[in-house]
């Protein structure tokens, strides 16, 4: 079992190193800002179009859907800021055999591959997501404290499930060579998370909750803020998240056991 305090220290150190590595390129900051604002504004486009023709969709009003969109943008920011830069790196390290160097270090390799790289440009997507959430909050009647508590409580299991999904994707690259584009496939499916699950047919809802669990972190908190589901949503999300974390950890350990390094 990992020592929690040490784990957190290692993660903090990794993030610090990753951030200072990324911040070397200061000249890119302005370009990043311009592109980030462009990306974040374009992301609102499809929803604006949708509500230009309809007052509400499947019982969800524009501010309701904006809640979902806001959580989706925040998820995208976290994925592109913390997760995706690392995925590309690990896949390359496995292919080239450079993973050997990480395995030699006295820290759990899963931590090392998960938090080595940071993409600060994602801050703009994060700000975009927060702006959308703020607009939704301003348009909607205030939800109760209980609802807010459940919504916030849904974020950790949602993030844990999405991180585990990403780790599972990495594990496949131990067995197949070029799967770095798997992240784009995941990204394409995750795109479905920008709308509330009710707009999709039932089989897609199941997939987006339990297989590609993007609904946990986009629709679930939005539903909680609408006063639906309450604690049962949280229990369901926790159950799915725990399942994902256990499965991904097991897959990671098995993949590592199957890893044939560049030298062997």
């Amino acid at each position: 079992m990992l020592d929690l305090a040490r784990t957190l220290r290692v993660v903090a150190a990794l993030l610090r190193v990753g951030l200072s590595a990324a911040l070397q390129y200061r000249a890119d900051f302005l370009l990043d800002a311009v592109l980030g604002v462009l990306r974040a504004s374009a992301a609102v486009g499809p929803t604006v179009v949708l509500f230009s023709v309809r007052e509400q969709v499947a019982g969800w009003t524009a501010p309701d859907v904006a809640l979902v969109l806001g959580f989706y943008l925040i998820l995208q920011a976290l994925m592109s800021g913390l997760v995706e830069p690392n995925l590309g790196e690990v896949v390359e390290a496995i292919r080239s055999g450079n993973l050997d160097l990480l395995l030699l270090k006295p820290v759990d390799a899963q931590l090392l591959v998960s938090f080595r790289r940071v993409q600060p440009a994602a801050i703009w997507d994060l700000l975009g997501g927060l702006a959308v959430l703020a607009w939704a909050g301003w348009q909607r009647p205030s939800p109760g404290w209980g609802a807010i508590l459940v919504a916030v409580g849904l974020l950790p299991p949602g993030l844990a499930a999405m991180y585990s999904l990403w780790l599972l994707a990495i594990c496949t690259s131990f067995f197949f060579v070029r799967v770095d584009n798997l992240r784009y496939v995941l990204g394409a499916v995750v795109d479905a998370g920008r709308n509330p699950l009710v707009v999709y047919p039932p089989w897609m809802r199941v997939i987006l909750t339990a297989v590609i669990p993007v609904g946990l972190i986009t629709t679930f908190p939005a539903s909680a803020l609408r006063g639906e589901g309450g604690l049962s949503l949280w229990v369901l999300a926790m159950g799915i998240a725990v399942g994902f974390v256990i499965a991904s950890r097991a897959a990671w350990l098995r993949s590592l056991a199957a890893y044939t390094s560049s030298g062997s």
Partner: peptide, 28 residues
């Protein structure tokens, strides 16, 4: 890299998601 190419095709499935959405919208 044909297996890789299959994955690339699957990245462009957004039209299916959008179809599901607009199919629901047009149901009314």
């Amino acid at each position: 890299w044909r297996a890789e190419l299959i994955l690339w095709v699957l990245t462009a499935t957004l039209p299916l998601v959008q179809l599901a959405l607009w199919n629901t919208v047009a149901a009314d």
